[in-house]
């Protein structure tokens, strides 16, 4: 797709942004009219609101190219990364902008990421893995291996979209389960056994109801639901293996 040239003629977008501050009883919505380029992103609009309309609007962002995971929020009820979501794709009407779900709102669009990171700890925080697939090359080509950051950018969109996380605070959540599967696949020197034992639990991978909302929400193609089901396959395989061994020993 050729780069979008064309002058960035500015258009007026209407944003309805959720506002909440410690001490408020419940969130309220502020409406803003923002003039930004036709192919501007939601983050461009929110930054413009901050610099031109209301300095007290607080939101998180950093890399602007879906690689750091700080600008996760909900636009029109759907989990998105603000930095790569074009306003044009969010429809004409007032765009409803809310903080991520299933996490404690600290203020306005900023949520507390502590629980997400705490749930990722036991998986051993895998950040870099080995790979050998380059774009434009077929996988069989003998392209040399290289190190690569994991796809997961710890943005919390999957946790926000997950129906089980919406109702059960003890559920590990799709992000942690996907991290557990990554460590199981490539232990990187660690021992995957305790990680598998950690997820093999009623609040772990067996709690997932396979709604696949997390994989739909994931901006980096991590497919946490697929990872959870892969964990289940691995655990079921081991479970059946154990039962057959018991069976043989009993005879």
């Amino acid at each position: 797709m050729a780069p979008e040239s064309g002058t960035a003629v500015s258009r007026t977008w209407r944003l309805r942004v959720s506002r909440w501050r410690p001490g408020d009883a419940h969130p309220h919505f502020d409406d803003f009219e923002v003039g930004v380029g036709a192919d501007a992103t939601l983050l461009d609009a929110l930054r413009r609101v901050r610099s031109h309309h209301d300095r007290s609007l607080t939101l998180r962002y950093s890399c602007c190219h879906a690689s750091c995971g700080t600008c996760g929020m909900r636009a029109n009820g759907r989990e998105v990364l603000a930095c790569v979501t074009r306003l044009a794709d969010l429809g004409p009407g007032p765009i409803l902008v809310e903080p991520l779900g299933n996490a404690r709102v600290e203020h306005d669009l900023v949520v507390d990421m502590r629980d997400l990171y705490v749930s990722l700890e036991p998986a051993g925080r895998p950040l870099v893995r080995q790979d050998s697939v380059l774009a434009g090359q077929d996988e069989t080509a003998a392209s040399p291996g290289f190190f690569r950051y994991e796809d997961c950018i710890e943005c919390g969109l999957c946790l926000s979209a997950c129906p089980v996380a919406a109702t059960d605070p003890l559920y590990l959540g799709p992000a942690a389960l996907a991290a557990a599967w990554r460590v199981t696949q490539e232990p990187r020197g660690g021992d995957p056994e305790p990680v598998l034992a950690w997820v093999d639990d009623e609040q772990g991978c067996w709690r997932c109801h396979a709604s696949f909302e997390c994989s739909e929400a994931c901006p980096s193609g991590v497919d946490p639901a697929g990872a959870t089901m892969a964990l289940r396959r691995e655990l079921t395989r081991r479970e059946l293996g154990r039962l057959t061994r018991l069976g043989r020993r009993a005879r």
């Binding site: 093999d200 639990d201 009623e202 772990g204 067996w206 289940r232 079921t236 479970e239």
Partner: peptide, 11 residues
């Protein structure tokens, strides 16, 4: 953690 806490129930 009974190790088989969840898998048996689901299976």
């Amino acid at each position: 953690p009974s190790g088989r806490g969840g898998s048996l129930a689901w299976i």
